[in-house]
Design a protein around this nucleic acid. Structure first.
Lengths: 339, 339
DNA sequence: CTGTTAGCGCATTCAC
DNA sequence: GTGAATGCGCTAACAG
């Protein structure tokens, strides 16, 4: 049995109340002597409060739930890193929930987290979640009364707190970079189009085309599912379409694109330029390092956790919409178009 | 306020006990009618037990603490994936603790986890942890009375449960593969030598050399720190030593080795063969995919969680030492030595 | 078949 | 300055 507040009361001959008071630094005039006694005993007995009991009374646990779709995806790993860093710094704790893209599991997890009395949830919607499913999840959290911030999504809606990156700008950066290099036929390998992150990137891409007065060609757009294989499929699917550059909506797909392109005997960047999105770490170690749009992923995580912790401490639930700026990391996979 | 057992007692007109009994399927003869009543009310009120209260009484939380050094490292991400998968399948929950290689933080986390009444800890010692520090951590957990299984380490010691891979065999596989290809001067980029995982791999390497009657040459051994940069440093450090192949003790270092080798104008595998260790996923997507020793990382995580959950359910703390077999994934980074 | 009583470990009025 | 009493939400004997 772990030592409890009772043990230290017995040891010091003081009452439980007194012990609790001094251990929590409560403003009550208890003699310095008693205080010293208590602290000493606490140290000697290696006392640590039972957070279950504390939580039961205080109605909070200083715990955040982190709901994501695949911890093996470097994007989410970085995000988790940020969340964890912020939490541990603040004396909070994080429960890891990997939903594996399953909406049902998502919902189930929310209930579990609620049972465990988490004080907040950081939510990364699964890629398959349509606006409807998203709202369903959101409502579940509202209903459970758990504050939540959405990361990397920014569905419109009242009271939806989100932390994300300006993907319109991201799409713009990628496209303009290629356009400046002289590319005019830029294929786009998007993620699921119903996701706002994709719509935004695509909009940025179109805006850039617009600036250069290049017509938008739907035949160059290929919708995929954010995986390496997706990238390979995309190239296969685009066969026949002439293009000199590819803008993939995440780095994973970009890797797939590069693989398949090479399999077809094409060189990067001599024959085709490739731009990715996210800047997860493998992008730098490739033999031909990937030019990509960098999101401050870890920052997203830190900020999301901060918002939740702040909202909790100040009891102010600010309806915020934090938007980070992406930046372009120019590396070896892009080059001026061949004449 | 969430609905409690009390609310449903009030709603049905039954006592709290009765409600608790039926909700927990306790073997007590309660009329089917009352049962139905309770279940109905529970559903209507969306009742979910407060796990804090339950934990306080039952003295357990169905929660595991996962202590690792860097969730961004794909190795640990995969491990976490496995742990999480097993836990969620069993209705358990996992608290993510990223220690960032800090031994003090490790110790602090253990206390926190103890306060939260986790039922077990999965522990990946930080790379800097010497045998002494490791024992210190282990003792802390013993003292806190938390069952623990160590992953990817297998320090000798009574009562130390561990789940890991047979690294002697791993080292052997890597070395023998190269030897079979005709390589005779095989450089070794190890991790910290005080780690048993490194000693084991090195032993496997030596055994293989032995079989081929090749003397062990310490000048070809370079101790590093498991990071990409480490790999680059290693190559710099080995300059002057003639070698035709490199065996890096993890994939990250292998990436660094490849980078630096290429920077020096050497081709892989034509000029130098490179073998890694772990088989984290970027290894497959490289332009020259990495030959590497595959560990069943996710399995390690699953098994570790299983052990803990089983030990908990059966109240049998088996002093186990689970050892998985590694296998060689032969890919493009190795080739017969040039004549 | 079901309700009463106690108590898990702790924080918090309110008396003394 | 300090302690007794109460209760957080729930389970577990033990009675009826």
């Amino acid at each position: 049995m772990r030592t409890t507040i009772k043990d230290i009361a017995a040891m010091t001959g003081l009452s439980i109340t007194t012990v609790s008071l001094v251990l929590n630094n409560k403003p009550s005039r208890i003699s310095e002597q008693s205080k010293a006694l208590v602290f000493e005993a606490a140290k000697k007995l290696r006392y640590r409060p039972n957070e279950l009991a504390v939580g039961l009374i205080k109605k909070h646990t200083k715990t955040l739930g982190l709901l994501l779709t695949d911890i093996c995806n470097p994007f989410f790993a970085s995000l988790a890193k940020g969340v964890e860093a912020c939490c541990s710094r603040e004396g909070w704790t994080v429960i890891l929930c990997d939903t594996g893209e399953s909406h049902d599991k998502e919902l189930a997890y929310m209930q579990t987290l609620s049972s465990k009395n988490v004080d907040g949830i950081i939510y990364c919607a699964s890629m398959d979640s349509t606006a409807q499913k998203f709202l369903e999840s959101w409502e579940m959290m509202e209903q459970l009364g758990i504050p939540c911030v959405v990361v990397d999504r920014s569905y419109e809606g009242p009271g939806i707190r989100s932390v994300s990156t300006d993907h319109v700008m991201g799409g713009w950066l990628a496209a303009e970079h290629l356009l400046k290099l002289g590319h005019r036929r830029i294929a786009c390998v998007t993620g699921p189009r119903h996701l706002d992150v994709c719509r935004d990137r695509l909009e940025g891409y179109r805006m850039a085309l617009n600036k250069y007065q290049i017509p938008y060609n739907p035949a160059l757009i290929c919708e995929q599912r954010f995986s390496i294989e997706s990238g390979r499929h995309a190239v296969a699917q685009l066969t026949g379409q002439p293009y000199t550059a590819v803008f993939a909506f995440n780095d994973m797909m970009a890797y797939g694109v590069c693989q398949e392109l090479r399999a077809q005997g094409l060189r990067i960047p001599e024959d085709v330029s490739v731009v990715g999105y996210d800047d997860i770490y493998p992008s730098q170690i490739l033999e031909v390092p990937l030019t990509t749009v960098r999101q401050p992923i870890e920052q997203l995580g830190i900020r999301a956790a901060q918002e939740l912790i702040a909202a909790f401490s100040d009891r102010i639930p600010p309806e915020c919409r934090v938007l980070f700026k992406p930046e372009l990391a120019v590396r070896g996979s892009t080059a001026p178009v061949e004449r």
